[in-house]
Design a protein around this nucleic acid. Structure first.
Length: 256
DNA sequence: TCCGGGGCCATTATTCAGAA
DNA sequence: TTCTGAATAATGGCCCCGGA
């Protein structure tokens, strides 16, 4: 029996969750992030798992929301150096921040749009002893690999332009999601992106049949769906759809 | 012209208790 | 548990400014 339905719309990606129990809301308790806890409790690993799941979902959603047409998939690698530790997340993030500034300046100078990106880091363990590299989905469509590498300065840059569609996005999202389970990222940001990206829209659905009708009209494909049981949410059914005509769906949603 | 440091505050990670 | 929203700690994006 379904009592509560929620839809999360990330442009063409539509996720529908139906559950038999209502979500609970109560704000009378003191909650909040505590300083780092002991690293070996069951609770800690449960939180790590949760964090990874949330990051996975969010990466996919942000990709669909913000890179809807053509985008560039970029890999940035550090060459071996004695100047700084290329396996240290903090140090590398600092270098990445400096790179962004150089890039911002370059883009501004050449009258190109501001750098928009969604990215993760990954450790290269085979042969490279945990060297960090960056994977980015971004809007650097018009810049050449050579230009990019000369701005990056720390090693190699590899860029591939991609058309945003269901298969490519799935592939790219999986690629981005691959490395975020690394324990070296526990307690840290597992993904990052430029400010001002569009967020997915979350809706409570009162009339599910009507919502399905609207979906049908927008050339919708079912990607996956399943049902599981949760002690708190009850019978829970989720379905992910891909909508060809996202614009029409948005118009319908505006009227709700 | 080019870009790095400081700092503000946006964004993410972690934690918690649990309705009809 | 493929969970939730809210609160808070922690991290990092990005603007401003000024030095080289």
């Amino acid at each position: 029996m379904t009592n509560y339905v929620k839809a999360t719309i990330s442009n063409r990606l539509v996720e529908i969750t139906q559950q038999s129990n209502f979500p609970f809301m109560n704000n009378s308790y003191s909650r909040g992030r505590k300083p780092a806890t002991n690293l070996n409790s069951d609770q800690y690993y449960a939180n790590v798992k949760k964090s990874i799941n949330r990051a996975r979902k969010q990466i996919r959603r942000l990709l669909e929301c913000n890179f809807t047409d053509e985008y560039a998939f970029v890999t940035l690698t550090f060459r071996k150096t004695s100047e700084f530790d290329i396996t240290n997340i903090k140090t590398c993030h600092q270098k990445f921040a400096e790179f962004k500034k150089r890039l911002d300046y370059y883009l501004q100078k050449h009258g190109q749009p501001k750098f928009k990106y969604l990215g993760v880091i990954e450790f290269q363990d085979k042969n490279r002893h945990g060297a960090i590299h960056y994977h980015l989905v971004c809007n650097l469509i018009n810049i050449t690999n050579e230009e990019l590498e000369s701005i990056w300065t720390y090693g190699w840059a590899n860029k591939k332009n991609t058309k945003s569609d269901i298969e490519e996005n799935e592939k790219i999202a999986n690629y981005l999601k691959k490395g975020i389970t690394d324990p070296r990222l526990n307690g840290m940001k597992k993904y990052f992106h430029s400010h001002g990206l569009k967020s997915p829209i979350t809706l409570e659905i009162d009339n599910l049949d009507e919502f399905y009708d609207a979906l049908d009209k927008c050339q919708t494909t079912l990607l996956e769906g399943d049902t599981y049981h949760s002690a708190f949410l009850g019978e829970t059914k989720y379905e992910n759809y891909y909508v060809e005509n996202a614009k029409e769906l948005m118009e319908y949603v505006q009227d709700l």
